[in-house]
Design a protein around this nucleic acid. Structure first.
Lengths: 174, 174
DNA sequence: GGGTACATGTAATCAGTTACATGATTTA
DNA sequence: TAAATCATGTAACTGATTACATGTACCC
């Protein structure tokens, strides 16, 4: 089961696909898309077109298997291979020290000289709304979530609270 | 001064270039690179190759002017045109409601099922270090910074503190 | 039975990354 | 003067985004 072209570079998108396939057992790109939309979106976006392209790349690398419907839509269904599961687990077992960027458009505007007042108002509102969504989700389904997902959601809530605080201060000052 | 090909899409990178040129008056890509490294980096990365490519795009669109050295290195120096300054100011005057993604590699690992304990340890350490850098910078030069930059730095500090708190809890639990 | 929303995918483009390459300065 | 290091840039690649396109099911 070795000897495959094991030389692709795996990006975060790759691991998202691998990780979601590990949970789902198997899935079509469209199913991946719905899972992404209902879980990871908001803290890590993946374009739906990527969910068609990336599994193909991974299939070429032997990390997932591809099965195509005979009739009709000729849907493709993907599942992890042993090599894929290994790659995922190797990555998961090696805690990253990398920390991402903040990359908030609002903060960029502030940095580049926008008026703090109106910007703070818009941003506080937007973050408050996002926070409310997270809180609602946490309250309704938090109990049945897998650990990783719930923890990530809680991180999102903590950060959004911080942003609301931050912009509120600027709003009152302006 | 109109009639220029005013149909490029401006990305965050574009506004970074426009904004930094507005501050600097004029600059070569290399100078832009150093400014980026000493200010915005950490909350919004720009690859140095982009600082060569992007000004050219903007020049084609008439938003910056390009002047090239005759002798030696044939360095290119860029400056805002009136159209460029206008584009920048139009953007700055329109507070964005967009909020970015979190996009933390560590959070992605957590979400996809990594062991919280060791991950939390690595991440808490990394964020603590970043926080210390920000705090040092704030203490030494915070007073002389432009407002936007100081405010952005303070946002970075607030967020890093939150991350340290978040991972510390997970670390103790694990 | 026509519209509208969901489902499913491909193609073209482009921003961004990585890699390469060489010129100028400093320093040991 | 050799070796680093800083300065300066280009080329190639590719992941990601945008746009397009069509099929299917439901509902009014």
């Amino acid at each position: 089961m070795d000897g495959l072209p094991e030389n692709v570079k795996l990006t975060p998108t790759s691991y998202i696909v691998l990780g979601l396939l590990a949970r789902a057992g198997e899935a079509t790109p469209y199913q991946l898309k719905t899972v992404v939309a209902s879980s990871i979106a908001g803290f890590w976006t993946v374009q739906h077109a990527q969910l068609y392209a990336e599994p193909q790349r991974l299939a070429r690398a032997g990390l997932v298997s591809e099965r195509q419907e005979e009739g009709g839509r000729r849907r493709r269904t993907y599942a992890l291979t042993d090599a894929g599961r290994e790659a995922l687990e190797r990555w998961l077992a090696e805690p990253t020290e990398a920390i991402g960027e903040i990359r908030q458009p609002g903060l960029l505007q502030l940095f580049l000289g926008a008026e703090p007042g109106p910007l703070a108002q818009a941003q506080r509102a937007a973050h408050a709304e996002r926070l409310a969504q997270y809180e609602a989700l946490h309250e309704t389904t938090g109990a049945h979530m897998e650990d990783g997902m719930r923890l990530a959601l809680e991180a999102g809530m903590a950060l959004e609270r911080e942003w609301v605080r931050y912009w509120a201060v600027l709003e009152e000052a302006g």
